[in-house]
Design a binder for these strands. Structure first.
Lengths: 321, 390
DNA sequence: GGTTTATACACACATT
DNA sequence: GTGGAC
DNA sequence: GAATGTGTGTCTATCCA
């Protein structure tokens, strides 16, 4: 069917930059196509790998897709405007793209195991939750879960159900890569039907965060450009004074998030803490300045030990040991 | 606004204001009549102490109650304060008893009641507010519904037949009805032994039935797994509801147990996610530096504090810490610089040696980072953005 | 002189 | 009813 | 938190003057 320009693995993987500077534009029904975007990693595991099977399956099902480097997620869908070849131009102008409100994180059982163990699992879920897309999907391939993995079966099932119940993500269970491809195929087709009659409005992430009143049932919806989405998932966000202060506090062993937050509750900035230390008439007072700061759950004292360590850090005039 | 999670932390201080209020009325009085004055003083002291005691006890009790409620949500004890509510319809199905058995094997209570939705499970949590024993529970916003195999197959089939827009029930209409009966709840569906159905469908001849509308008319011929997946994806995109397909009743029982645990732990985890800093989970996050009781290691802490700024290399941090080996020394250096520009650029010209030996290139800290560090050390505005171009 | 009992209970941190 | 316990 | 186990330190509780 409509074989995409980027569908071939050897084709260029250029990422359209148009849209970042454009304040706003919109796609109208019939003027765009829905395309599945596949992360580069999912297809380039090396020639010895079976990663090309996914490409084969998608091609076999005539799924229009595009292989790119996604900074978050493994699959997503974009609406690409249909561009008419300009007269005399060999290449049509760069097509603008809006990312649909669904993103898929594919996880095979071994991946899930290692992700849970080293903490990437929680981090991924956090990033997915605030990447700007409302409907994150975990696509879990339980290829004969009877295999000896580094984590018990019960644990993995619990993790998946937690992802569903606690995090509110959609968890799609699949038996193998072939079923995963089938799922992506069905999703592509039905997403095409879902969006084809809608008006798509470009939108920035900031605008989206304050209000997203449009649910997928409305006649129109506001979407991020692919460029903004993909760049936004990697760039360092702006730091504030209190954030950096909290991170600095936590550099000493024993100061956790709750402790740092409790200290921040009283002294929101390094300047105010230093001023408080300067106001202390005696070094003894400095050591106890933070001792009775109430931490965490409900009002547990920070304690004299950490208070003294912090006083040493911020009150030592000479070089630190 | 930037993605900082310094956000909404509970400010829970009711005690301080009340205590200060009680300490306020203490102006000195002139000596006129000794006895009366002594009496008044005594009265004042007495009232004052009574008030303090009362308030202290009230606050302490309140804090204990809050602490206990928080403890009740911890992963180890939260199940003990949960009761699962099973619809009797579940137990009337073959194999439904396994669910009851599995749930009772957990350390949560378990009751059978007629539910608004047949064959459903809901959960209740002890509020902890109840001083009277038992009976104040709050409903958890979750609902797990077992969809009978025959009904599920019928609904998939009905969705396939787009031509007949009659009263035929689909997964979507089923879900809509369920949510109408239980407003505000997150719905999850489960179907048991669908694979067994497929096997029977293959082996045995299709049992052709009259097109009875309502449920009990059984297996519809020629339902493929693809049809099921089509229906599930449609349900997902239109409602966000997910359906768990299970091979056996044992698996369903296990799923119900797992689901129960997830529901029980959900408030605890959500609260933690709210009140914790996002950067703790970032991949390159390193735990706190160990420091003994006399400050050994604090220099490393100071260096790592510099590295908490974005775009600061190890070499840069080393250079800065070498020049100013403690936070206070840096602050004092700022204090002695009269002009704003001087303070901004205090660290800008510090040389930073990069690379080794032959390829060693020596650059400087630069004015941009120098300014960020200055703002961090001196600003009294906690929400000031260090990366703002101003 | 200047720290302190004894147990329980958390929390920070480290492992299969 | 306070506050220390070696 | 995946689940469980390990050590730092506070915290709560006594007993007794």
């Amino acid at each position: 069917q409509s074989s995409d320009r980027d569908a071939s693995p050897r084709s260029s993987c250029r990422e359209p930059r148009a849209g970042l500077l454009k304040p706003q534009f919109s796609f109208h029904p019939g003027n765009f196509d829905v395309i599945l975007c596949v992360d580069f990693i999912e297809t380039t595991g090396g020639p010895t790998s079976r990663k090309q099977d996914l490409v084969s399956e998608l091609q076999r099902h005539n799924v229009p897709f595009s292989i790119r480097k996604l900074h978050i997620g493994d699959f997503l869908w974009v609406a690409r405007e249909k561009v008419l070849p300009a007269a005399g131009q060999p290449q049509p102008p760069a097509a603008r793209e809006l990312v649909l409100d669904y993103v898929v994180e594919r996880k095979r059982m071994p991946d899930l195991c290692s992700s849970i163990i080293d903490g990437r699992f929680r981090e991924q879920k956090f990033r997915l939750r605030q990447c700007g897309i409302s409907h994150p999907i975990y696509l879990v391939e339980e290829s004969g879960s009877a295999q000896h993995l580094s984590l018990p079966e019960k644990t993995l099932q619990q993790a998946m159900t937690n992802t569903q119940v606690v995090d509110g993500f959609f968890v799609k269970r699949t038996r193998d890569l072939r079923e995963s491809a089938a799922y992506l195929t069905l999703m592509t087709r039905q997403l095409t039907r879902l969006y084809e009659d809608k008006t798509l409005l470009s939108c920035t992430k900031e605008e989206l965060e304050q209000e997203r009143p449009l649910q997928p049932s409305a006649g129109s919806c506001r979407l991020l450009t692919f460029a903004e989405f993909n760049e936004g998932a990697v760039k360092n966000k702006a730091q504030t004074v209190s954030e950096v202060f909290a991170r600095q506090l936590m550099q000493i062993s024993g100061i956790s998030g709750d402790k740092a937050a409790a200290i921040l509750e009283r002294y929101k900035t390094p300047a105010s803490l230093l001023a408080a230390y300067a106001s202390c008439p005696t070094p003894r007072c400095q050591e106890q300045l933070l001792s009775d700061v109430k931490c965490g759950k409900l009002q547990r004292n920070l304690g004299p030990a950490l208070s003294k360590t912090l006083a040493q850090l911020y009150c030592t005039s000479g070089p630190l040991p | 606004r930037p993605t900082v999670c310094v956000s909404d932390r509970l400010v829970q201080n009711g005690s301080c204001e009340a205590v200060e209020e009680s300490l306020k009325p203490l102006p000195l009085q002139r000596k006129t009549k000794c006895s009366q004055e002594e009496l008044g003083k005594a009265q004042q002291r007495t009232n004052e102490r009574e008030t303090q005691k009362m308030l202290q006890q009230q606050e302490r009790e309140r804090r204990k109650a809050l602490a206990n409620r928080w403890k009740a949500q911890r992963p180890e004890e939260c199940l003990k304060h949960i009761q699962a509510v099973l619809d009797p319809g579940l137990l009337q199905i073959e194999g439904g008893g396994l669910v009851l058995t599995a749930l009772q094997a957990m350390e949560c209570s378990c009751v059978i009641e007629n539910q608004a939705v047949p064959c459903s499970i809901t959960w209740r949590r002890k509020t902890g507010l109840g001083q009277a024993e038992e009976d104040n529970w709050t409903e958890e916003p979750n609902l797990l519904v077992l969809v009978l195999l025959e009904e599920f197959v019928a609904m998939i089939h009905n969705y396939k037949q787009v031509s007949m827009e009659g009263p035929n029930e689909t997964l979507q209409s089923f879900a809509a009805n369920v949510m109408k009966k239980t407003p505000g709840k997150t719905l999850a569906l489960a179907v048991v032994e669908l694979e067994k159905y497929f096997r029977l469908e293959c082996c045995c001849l299709p049992t052709v039935n009259s097109h009875g509308n309502r449920g009990k008319a059984n297996t519809v011929p020629n339902l493929s797994r693809l049809d099921v997946e089509e229906g599930l994806v449609a349900l997902q995109l239109q409602t966000g509801i997910q359906v768990r397909l299970l091979e056996s009743w044992k698996e369903f029982a296990d799923f119900a147990s797992t689901f129960t645990k997830a529901v029980a732990e959900a408030p605890f985890k959500r609260e933690r996610d709210k009140t914790s800093f996002s950067f703790c989970l970032e991949g390159d996050w390193i735990g706190g530096m160990k420091v003994d009781r006399f400050g050994k290691g604090l220099l490393q802490v100071w260096k790592r504090q510099i590295q908490q700024f974005n775009r600061v290399s190890l070499e840069t941090a080393n250079a800065i810490v070498a020049k100013y080996p403690s936070p206070l020394l840096l602050k004092q250096a700022y204090d002695t610089r009269p002009s704003r520009q001087e303070r901004h650029n205090l660290l800008a010209e510090i040389p930073v040696r990069r690379g080794d030996g032959v390829t060693a290139t020596t650059r400087r800290v630069g004015p941009e980072l120098s300014k960020r560090i200055y703002l961090q050390m001196t600003s009294h505005n906690p929400d000031l953005s260090l990366d703002a171009t101003g």
